[in-house]
Design a protein around this nucleic acid. Sequence first.
DNA 1: ACTGACATACTTGTATACAAGTATAGTAAA
DNA 2: TTTACTATACTTGTATACAAGTATGTCAGT
Lengths: 242, 242
Amino acid sequence: MSEKQNYIYPEKWIANASTGVRLASELRIRIIAGLIERGSVLSENKLAAEFEVSRSPIREALKILASENIIRLERMGAVVVGLTEKDIKELYDVRLMIETFVYERILKLDTTNLVKELSKIREMMEVAIKYKDADEFSYQDVLFHETIVRSINHSYILLIWNNAKPVMESLILLSMRMRMEEKFEDYSRVLNNHDVYIEAIQSKDRVIMIKALHQNFEDVQEKVEDLWMSQQMLTKEKEQNI
Amino acid sequence: MSEKQNYIYPEKWIANASTGVRLASELRIRIIAGLIERGSVLSENKLAAEFEVSRSPIREALKILASENIIRLERMGAVVVGLTEKDIKELYDVRLMIETFVYERILKLDTTNLVKELSKIREMMEVAIKYKDADEFSYQDVLFHETIVRSINHSYILLIWNNAKPVMESLILLSMRMRMEEKFEDYSRVLNNHDVYIEAIQSKDRVIMIKALHQNFEDVQEKVEDLWMSQQMLTKEKEQNI
DNA sequence: ACTGACATACTTGTATACAAGTATAGTAAA
DNA sequence: TTTACTATACTTGTATACAAGTATGTCAGT
């Protein structure tokens, strides 16, 4: 297990972060991608040896993952909980809840700057597609929604967002990398969804917002299916290797 | 600053927890009570010396508080953010959001056991009043709401609850301790509010639930006012001492 | 008086050391 | 064969050590 590590989380997203945070990101996405199996037990010492760091940053990483319910810290080792299909649906329950709340607040605000910013991000996404950069696209996708959440200046809503964000980010990233290869045409549909968001915010029309949330949710359903496909694939590969 | 520590967080609530978690609880309630001032800077070394532990559990505690937005970890020290009145209102926005979501789910479930459990907790609260035990009352109060949240078996809603819980717990505890001395008659009103909750869950009548949430919210408003009073008092005391 | 360099005393992040507790395998006895 | 015990090799939690970076105050030079 002490072979050279192949990192799958984009390094430039965590360039300035501490080792602990970097490790958490990497472990998180591996668990979500199914590379680290549900039910397996992680030991601080083994992880420290694998990643060639001391236990201090490993402990930090495990605490972070435990606070996201991705692992469960027990007396003898950290049990990998991972994400079930139910978990992912519930994550999006929360996201829907947040975005609905946020939208109600947005209705009372001047949205000129917000719309401008979202349009910029939307164009960034377009560029990312042009250059077939799944990571960059995912980054802008998450940033788009985060920008909306931040716009209402609500500390606790932002806290919830920040709590759910890492898992969501990993889900989107994995899904987008996959679509880049197999379902590239999906990208324009995702882009279109974001247009609907912008329209809803600009017009302050609840009906359009509901449409945006609805479309987003449908897209999510597919994301989830993608993910399970990918997990099954990974599992099959592993079985074949054995 | 290295005098013997007077702990204000109930020790038996954290008897089995690690030093880091215990320290987080104590620091949290001190910050919320205003004993540690907003804007002041906490250093790991100084805290370690004050509490006579090493930096390891201190670091753990600071990470926890940072994840609750109570402090802000910067390069040179942890800045105490504390809670503004706005923060507390926003906290209860979130609580209202969660409980509304939960209630919609509860409507679809068999609530026999839940009602039984809530009734039990309600009686415990009554006993706590009888023995003028503000801490026990607060504990049961938080447990009451947590029991409702847990009943729908929703991992991410529970995650949000767990994130907001420590701050809420501290707020309730401080408020109840104060009322025990000065506004004891409030206890029966709080108890009555919980009856409305039980009734709403038993009858599955949205109107009653809205009433319960509404009453709770009004009570919260008073809690917040209490807290600011207590903070002002503390500040005045300090000024007089100087 | 004012500015810039530098020593110093802080800060955090990471590595390592030690202590206390727990699961496990293997062995001895019934 | 089964059961009880014990040695052992793990586990985490906490303390300490070290490294690298940052704010601050002093002092020299202008």
